Simulated assay, not measured.
Amino acid sequence: MASKNRAREARRGTRLDPARSAAAPVAAETAPAGRPDSSRERLTRRFFTGVEILLVVAPFAGLAVAGSLNLDAAGVSSLKDLMAQDPRFMVSFLAACVQPFAAYIVHIAYRHYRDGDGGYALGNLVGVLCAEMLMQSIPGVAGLALLLWRVWRPAAPEGVAWRRRRGVGGVLADVSGSVVVVLLAAVCAFASWRLNNG
């Protein structure tokens, strides 16, 4: 009899405990689980890293080619002269300065995706995609579309649980970084529109 009681106590709180198995779906919904380290997920990680690099390098490389800038002191003075002479270049430069922040949001989104919080990742990736469309960044739009295509299927069911778990206020807090990027992109887009139509 004592051995049966010891066995029952040993099962308590483990997978063999019937009470724990009934509560398992609720625990899975409240605490995201990490993703398995598979070849698909390793490739997804490489895609995220590539898009982060693309977001930072592509706009500044384009500006350097367009403005024929050097990275020495003469290049800095020519940058100031170019900004003073061409307001469109200044708007493009400000839009390029937004891109490292967008890359940081993508990096944070991947960490949440890797940890099983796909809703957070999808919400922020969609926000950054909207910002890239406002800034008319073709590499950014292509990169974010690739990432969304890559993570949509495994992360979409987690998005429902994320919205239910976090509520409206929590969702807004989670996507606040990408909302800031969208607002900055909207300012740049509005300034560019005014310059083109002014």
Score class of each variant (00 low, 15 high):
L43D: 15
G50F: 06
E52V: 11
G62I: 06
A33Q: 13
F48Y: 14
L63P: 02
E29T: 02
V51M: 06
G34T: 08
G34A: 07
I53T: 14
G50P: 00
A64T: 15
G34S: 07
E29Q: 06
V57T: 15
D37Q: 10
A64S: 10
G34W: 02
I53M: 11
L55V: 08
E29D: 10
A61P: 04
G67K: 07
D37Y: 09
A58C: 07
R46C: 05
I53R: 14
R42C: 02
L63T: 03
R35G: 03
P32G: 01
T30K: 07
G62C: 08
L63G: 05
T30L: 03
A64H: 07
G34D: 01
R40T: 07
A61R: 14
R35V: 08
A33E: 11
A64G: 06
R35E: 02
A61H: 10
L63R: 01
G62V: 01
V56M: 12
L63E: 06
S39A: 12
L43Q: 13
V56Y: 03
A58H: 14
F47I: 04
F48K: 00
T49Q: 06
V57H: 15
A64K: 13
T49K: 09
A31I: 13
A31C: 11
T44R: 14
E29V: 05
R35K: 09
F48H: 06
F60T: 08
V65G: 00
A28M: 03
E52K: 03
S39L: 10
E29A: 04
F60I: 07
F60S: 00
S38H: 06
S38F: 08
L63V: 09
R40E: 04
R46A: 12
E52Y: 07
R45H: 07
L43Y: 13
V57Y: 12
D37I: 08
R45T: 11
A33W: 08
E52I: 06
V51I: 15
A31T: 15
L63Q: 02
V51P: 04
A28T: 03
T44N: 01
